[in-house]
Write a protein that binds this DNA or RNA. Sequence first.
DNA 1: CCAAAAGTGTTGGTCTTACACCCATGC
DNA 2: GCATGGGTGTAAGACCAACACTTTTGG
Lengths: 229, 229
Amino acid sequence: MASEPPEHRFAGVQQHPLVAVDVALFALTGGALYCLLVQVKDGSFAGKWAFPGGLVRADESLDDAAERELFELTGVRGGYIEQLYTFGRPERDPARRVVSASYLALVANLNLSVNAGARYGAVKWFAADKLPPLAYDHDQVGRMALQRLRAKLQYTNIVYSLLPKEFTLGELQEVYETILHRRLDRRNFRKKILALGLLRQLSKKRLGTHRPAALYAFKQKRPMVIEMV
Amino acid sequence: MASEPPEHRFAGVQQHPLVAVDVALFALTGGALYCLLVQVKDGSFAGKWAFPGGLVRADESLDDAAERELFELTGVRGGYIEQLYTFGRPERDPARRVVSASYLALVANLNLSVNAGARYGAVKWFAADKLPPLAYDHDQVGRMALQRLRAKLQYTNIVYSLLPKEFTLGELQEVYETILHRRLDRRNFRKKILALGLLRQLSKKRLGTHRPAALYAFKQKRPMVIEMV
DNA sequence: CCAAAAGTGTTGGTCTTACACCCATGC
DNA sequence: GCATGGGTGTAAGACCAACACTTTTGG
């Protein structure tokens, strides 16, 4: 057997696909779930909406790239972000082969000062259950992101990333009802959530239109797997 | 604002990472879970064990590449395979930047005629809970694969891919006990599994060393999410 | 005083767990 | 006849789902 060059691991010819990340960012407001989309400027998908994203740079990891893309567009750093799935069909971008790792990101409020900058035609929040047809294979990204979000809401504590520091139990419950598309019994919900011991009751109250509600905060804002609902 | 070239989506300079897939293949025998590793031939990890894998070709998707790699090494096609996670730290392979999508694959029996061919120094099954230190970031791949396998065994029916066409309830239970590292009550297990209605009892019996056991088969060999244990 | 959301326990049903003995076969 | 895994039911406890009235505030 002939000796092999040290590069044999890379021996297969490859028209080096580009490597990109795409970020599906979600936020809640007014009892509805929203998703941030950008308008593609050029190419065969010009004018279509898509998840924001871009190429991974030479010196950064996929995670770094996703966080950077999110930061550049929204100014948000340090929120919840996790890798979702990697898409690599050769024809997913007709212009050039691009393999793209998609990410799921969550923020507590959608009043971000997003600006399209030079890269995108526009940036806009869309109701997550009524996304327009998307560019590339981003319809699939959107479906997977929602599915992952729903699943993880139930068996992890990541809901903390969708809420402000202080919130009422009613607001917490509303997050679940909105995303899971089902009504929860208030008494059972409170019992269950409080029994988990993840919340700390604050002495303050949320003064509002009616009876003041006790405010709570998460003791820990760190992903944990735990049966929430 | 200056007009942009149509390639603006690829404007970030990128020293085109290579795109690869790695496959963590598992199989059961004799009440233990095994995992197929190959020995790296060259480079700074020469001699180390790793999951088999290789570059994605120009005309194939990531899934295709993973299935091809698995087939080339083992002759197995059409078993269970799913994408696990994509690793992309710039320094994960010191020789060259490689972004690698890892896959989890399952086969029913480990008596495969694997041959190292020219690419690998050796190919060998290792007990899944005692893997040697692996090359690249494959330790992490191994941990994630096991974790995913354990999780999916519980909330999907993929156990079908680890069993032959016909099996006894005792063998099915053994699969769960082996992978989940816990003993299950035989009566409760049978009750639960049969109540799910996924199995079809065959008229045949497994004749063996002692009392013959009824043979069962899965009605459907297709991934479904369902609470199994 | 009215509207609106907050807060609070109990009960019945379902699901889960624990547990022990007889059976059919090969040797 | 004995060793080995196959096959079976029941009872107690844990968990989950359903359900209605009172409280507190703002207007």
